[in-house]
């Protein structure tokens, strides 16, 4: 059952030189109760896609899509303010830096109070007294804070990154969303702190039936969390499929490159791989190349890769490459 379905999403950036297309004709969907991953190098457009889905992109961007269905309700026809209002009740977002996601001049208590939606107000009259205070306490306990009073009276600048991200999750919990968009929330933390946040996201997914779109830079321990993975390169989804298949049997060379980049802590000997890490970065969005964007960086590239862009093939997901692996 698809929770979100977007067809033909295009994102372009308005620059003084004209419109620069970043994503073209993207098809994206998330099923209920699923954790979907968006993995790619930095600057490939993952954050833009997240913000476009949530509706909070900056006005510099031009977003257009053919169809946007949320939970079987079609919101394609709505303009931006209506879409934002519709999505604000159903989508929660977590950004990269926890401390910067909170207003530095307000205490945590004030921010969480402001954050509670009016729809969460209890019906029964005797439960209504101080419901906000109790609700905040419950939420903070759920994310694992023991001493809620100290946290509530603090300012965001006084809390560490991990604590701020937990507060963000608590605020997201309070809104009871259907979808959580997590834009690389743990990359600034050490592995132990990452585990705490990931466990919280996982419990959100299992216990509260919240679907998650998880954006990340590397495949590492996060891959075990996800059900399906999209690999993004140069603004396009180059491969998509279930996690086990992508980890064991990647079809696109880019996926293989990313997999090889994971540090192998256990192996004693050096890993000799046919795919050495390629240098360089993805091409500039203002001067799109002819043919496959991976181009000459790809270890198994050939003449055809530089002439025409690759086709999309569907097999347990889809991938686009002229010379796919493992087929």
């Amino acid at each position: 059952m698809a929770l979100i379905e977007i067809k033909n999403l295009s994102i372009s950036l308005k620059t003084p030189n004209g419109l620069v297309p970043i994503c073209k004709n993207l098809d994206f969907s998330v099923n209920e109760g699923e954790i979907v991953g968006l993995i790619g190098t930095s600057g490939a457009g993952k954050t833009l896609i997240c913000k476009a889905i949530a509706g909070i992109h900056s006005r510099d961007l031009e977003i257009s899509f053919d169809r946007y269905r949320f939970d079987n309700i079609d919101i394609t026809g709505k303009d931006l303010p209506q879409r934002r209002k519709f999505l604000s009740e159903r989508v929660a977002i977590m950004l990269q830096n926890g401390t910067r996601s909170l207003d530095p001049l307000m205490t945590i208590r004030e921010q969480m109070t402001e954050n509670l939606p009016n729809s969460a107000r209890p019906r029964k009259l005797w439960k209504r007294f101080f419901w906000k205070k109790r609700e905040i306490d419950i939420l903070l306990h759920k994310v694992g804070f023991k001493d809620t009073k100290a946290i509530l009276n603090a300012y965001p600048g006084e809390l560490s990154d991990v604590q701020c991200q937990k507060v963000n999750i608590a605020m997201a919990l309070g809104r009871k969303p259907r979808l959580l968009i997590a834009d690389d929330p743990v990359s600034t933390m050490t592995a132990l702190s990452q585990l705490q946040i990931l466990r919280l996201i996982d419990s959100l997914n299992q216990n509260n039936h919240v679907s998650v779109i998880y954006v990340s830079n590397d495949l590492g321990q996060i891959a075990r969390l996800m059900d399906r993975i999209n690999m993004i390169y140069y603004g396009e989804i180059v491969e998509q499929g279930p996690t086990e298949q992508i980890l064991k049997n990647p079809h696109h060379p880019f996926t293989k490159i990313m997999l090889d980049a994971i540090p192998d802590m256990g192996a004693g000997s050096r890993r000799k791989s046919f795919f050495k890490a390629p240098g360089g970065d993805h091409p500039d969005f203002q001067h799109p190349p002819v043919g496959c964007p991976l181009g000459s960086r790809c270890p198994c590239a050939d003449r055809e890769c530089n002439i025409k862009p690759p086709q999309t093939r569907v097999k347990n997901g889809f991938y686009c490459c002229h010379f796919p692996l493992n087929t």
Partner: peptide
Amino acid sequence: MDFIRMAISRGQSQFFLARKHIFLN
């Protein structure tokens, strides 16, 4: 900035944002 984007994603109106978040900052 991030915290304003988060507030927008929660559906705050521009007037509310201006009054509570932007003015003092």
